[in-house]
Write a protein that binds this DNA or RNA. Structure first.
Lengths: 223, 223
DNA sequence: TAGAGACTAGGTGTTTTCACCTATTTTTTG
DNA sequence: CAAAAAATAGGTGAAAACACCTAGTCTCTA
């Protein structure tokens, strides 16, 4: 009768902390923890006992929570995904809900809210607090289907453009990026220029903001 | 006879998780938790019972762990500070040790290592694992005093610098910023340059990332 | 198989950033 | 009040970004 849960977060201490908090609840049982999206999917596929609810951080190395959620929604449509993150901003939230997360929880939440969210999700299948709900309404009124299609690769950035964008966010210069991708710096300039036109920003500052807001780069990579 | 501890981390769930982990140890007692450096200093000053050890995250809004550590080293030199962070890189580590942290712990550590570090710090006054020790040796050979003076080591950003940073994030150029603030573009350049030195980043891309990660600019303005 | 889209890369020139300096004035603080 | 910190601004020069342009190759698909 326990609520079976899996946790994905790249910080072991956080994961273990969450485990310590949740293990105090008699009706909650933690099946396993994963260090990133890839690990989560692997363990999920191998697990004999599948979790009913997965709590996943969005910002993770290797494969992030967004990607992982997409895969889980396809391969295990009955598993509920609760998104957990420090970044409580509209694009993140609207996008995660569009992808299929059933709750969005800030890392700044209280343990009590975390437990409540888990129980609500288990009982009703979803749980949105007021702020999240407000964001969803906003997102919906602006056409969530459109958002679904456009969302991140919104203006549809190409694979190469995304690579260049990521390296720009890592503070590399044009020629450094050229070296890394084995292409001419001129080509990198073309990509940067196209990125600016497609995203409608003015300079690298704009590109970085765009990348972060659209969750195209993970924060971890900056260090 | 308990080891008295205070915890500072901006994520409540993490803080509570840590509390849950550490409260299982009979010899460890958690006095209070703080949500950022400012909060930590305030609570520290007001506390009737002072902690012997403070575990602080480095990346926090308002006042970060670096700044807080510096203040604590001055006002409460007998309190040991353990730096806790996701970013296990040389500059961070060397800098924190230079400032006076007695241990450097990754958020990716095991709860066991966390407890061990606390006990070692309590007994011996410090604890460095092999990797940290290696970095310190490296850092020392390169002149730690210089690093202390130059690097970003928590010198908080000035009001003007924050204004400039915000406008950089709004994609304004140096001369546009100069116009807006009624100062010479040269002065803006000085501010930008100082920002880069203080934050330890390489270019505007780095500044934008720093600003967003440290909650120095509000995301809302971009929507 | 023709066309679209992506990736490539060169030319040219302007503007901006960035890294070194020095130095004065203003404000804050012990 | 004296010292420290912050804000101001100039010089110089190299590197990078940005804005225009043209144009070849490659891959996928209608």
């Amino acid at each position: 009768m326990d609520i079976k849960i899996a946790i994905a977060d790249d910080e072991l201490l956080f994961r273990q902390g969450l485990r310590a908090i949740l293990s105090k609840q008699e009706d909650i049982k933690i099946l396993f923890g994963a260090s990133d999206g890839k690990d989560l999917i692997d363990q999920l596929n191998e697990a004999s006992e599948k979790p009913e609810i997965i709590i996943t951080d969005l910002k993770m190395p290797e494969m992030d929570g967004v990607e992982a959620t997409k895969i889980i929604r396809e391969t295990h449509p009955d598993i509920k995904v609760i998104a957990l993150t420090s970044y409580f901003t509209k694009p993140f939230i609207v996008n995660m809900i569009a992808i299929g997360a059933v709750a969005y929880l800030a890392k700044n939440s209280t343990p009590a809210l975390m437990v409540k969210t888990i129980r609500e999700v288990h009982a009703k299948g979803f749980y949105y607090d007021e702020k999240v709900f407000e964001y969803i309404k906003d997102g919906a009124s602006k056409g969530i289907t459109n958002l679904k299609a456009d969302s991140f690769n919104g203006t549809s950035l190409s694979k190469r453009e995304l690579e260049v964008l990521e390296l720009i966010c890592q503070q590399l210069t044009t020629s450094e990026i050229g070296d890394k991708l084995h292409i001419s710096p001129r080509t990198v300039e073309v990509h940067r220029n196209n990125l600016q036109i497609k995203t409608g920003v003015k300079n690298v500052a704009g590109l970085v903001i765009y990348a972060i807001q659209h969750n195209l780069v993970t924060f971890d990579k900056f260090y």
